[in-house]
Design a protein around this nucleic acid. Structure first.
Lengths: 105, 105
DNA sequence: TCTATTGTTCGACATATTTCGAACTATAGG
DNA sequence: CCTATAGTTCGAAATATGTCGAACAATAGA
């Protein structure tokens, strides 16, 4: 099925769209530091951030941050987990690998 | 100047935006095969394509292809050169390197 | 249970994007 | 000089995106 190719194409297009907004790209860069080998699935203060923090850093209101987080999550760039009152966010290391591979060939 | 960071950020955001449209991403993938070492700045039938060809492959009218090509060019993803009546297009190998580096760290 | 904190959802609005077709420009070849 | 081919520019229309503020939901702690 060459349908797979189209699916892949559109999925990558979606990922790039998610990264095409400066605020979302900033969120990505802020979070991506956790993707060193060894911290892969471990979430702590340095490898993740809370929605509120991200909003302050970006200078946008929380509803907008929430919207961006949702989009980044939808396309598989970040993962989230509730920790008490707050939601921790981190980049999925697999997507970074996939993107690296995408440009390596 | 940490202004550089913002400039970089917005430039990368622009590149991702250019790749976020499925038609433009298809053009990129169609052209990127030329980025093997050795064909770096050489434009020939296999490493480039003409605007008209790309349009047929995508199923969009030429004015739309022209628009997409212009955008891909604006952000530095592709380069073009007139060859007689036609315009040859190819991916700038440097941007592929930059993108690879972007996801490697 | 009441309150403060944190985040989500929703509606509204302004702006940007994608695409088309028509008109225009550039080049090659009689 | 005329004509065909290839591409660009422009204007219009439909759709998508980014952002805010208000209202709502979940959690922790007194």
């Amino acid at each position: 099925m060459s349908n797979n190719r189209i699916k892949d194409l559109n999925e990558f297009a979606d990922v790039f769209k998610a990264l095409s907004n400066p605020h979302r790209l900033q969120i990505f860069l802020r979070l991506v530091s956790c993707c060193k080998p060894g911290t892969v699935s471990y979430v702590d203060a340095e490898s993740s951030a809370y929605v509120g923090e991200l909003g302050e850093e970006l200078g946008v209101v929380k509803s907008t941050v929430s919207h961006h987080i949702k989009e980044l999550k939808r396309v598989g760039i970040i993962r989230t987990e509730r920790q008490g009152q707050r939601i921790a966010c981190w980049v999925d290391p697999e997507i970074v690998e996939a993107l690296k591979d995408f440009f390596t060939r």
